[in-house]
């Protein structure tokens, strides 16, 4: 089992002794378990859910809908003659409904899959981001005064403001797609 360090009664040597005792037996134990595993079921360990092409495709749909929403906001922000009513949050209710309903569908599907807690957490974060964007739009619209830089406020999200919005949404969706594709690519050859 390996030579134990000399015991002289102090806590450190007890700790060293324990470490030495544990090294070889845990490796042997793991090897025995591995043999038993292979012999009985030819098992493959799974720590993360399998790649799901439907989730992959539905994420793309969510991205398309989000991209369309942001593009619309960006066009309104870039037009100096945009009427205030064009940026009313009510004008975007349909867009948000579409995105949220796609997210719900994704949520239901992924909640049913094993070892899928990470994707489920990410879906919650993405959903929260869409809701926060909606709040942001309302906050901007309800601000009637000019901003301190002196620019008139027509109620639309600013072009500058939409840059970090797009970056964060892109980053969130990309993170989810990256993981989903990793589930496929890391396991190639299985």
């Amino acid at each position: 089992m390996g030579r134990m360090p000399a015991f002289n009664g102090d806590a450190r040597s007890i700790k060293e002794g324990k470490k030495t005792m544990l090294k070889k037996p845990s490796a042997v134990l793991f090897a025995v378990l591995a043999v038993a595993c292979i012999a009985t079921a030819g098992c493959t360990v799974r720590l993360v859910s399998d790649y799901d092409p439907v989730t992959d495709s539905q994420l793309s749909d969510v991205y398309h809908a989000t991209d369309a929403l942001l593009t619309r906001m960006e066009l309104l922000a870039s037009e100096p003659t945009t009427a205030r009513t064009a940026c009313s949050p009510d004008q975007f209710a349909g867009d948000y409904q579409q995105i949220v309903s796609r997210l719900r569908l994704l949520g239901v599907r992924n909640a049913a899959r094993d070892h899928n807690s990470i994707t489920n957490e990410q879906l919650a974060l993405l959903t929260n981001n869409i809701e926060t964007l909606r709040k942001l739009q309302r906050v901007r619209y309800n601000q009637t005064q000019a901003d301190t830089a002196g620019a008139a406020n027509n109620g639309c999200l600013l072009t500058d403001e939409l840059v970090p919005v797009r970056r964060t949404l892109d980053q969130t969706v990309t993170a989810m797609m990256k993981l989903e594709l990793a589930k496929r690519d890391f396991r190639k050859g299985e």
């Binding site: 993405l126 964060t168 993170a175 993981l179």
Partner: peptide, 16 residues
């Protein structure tokens, strides 16, 4: 939220 989503992906890739 987006930074957390990225960290979750890093965690997932680490697990893979």
């Amino acid at each position: 939220n987006s930074a957390n989503a990225v960290l979750l992906t890093v965690k997932g890739m680490g697990l893979l």
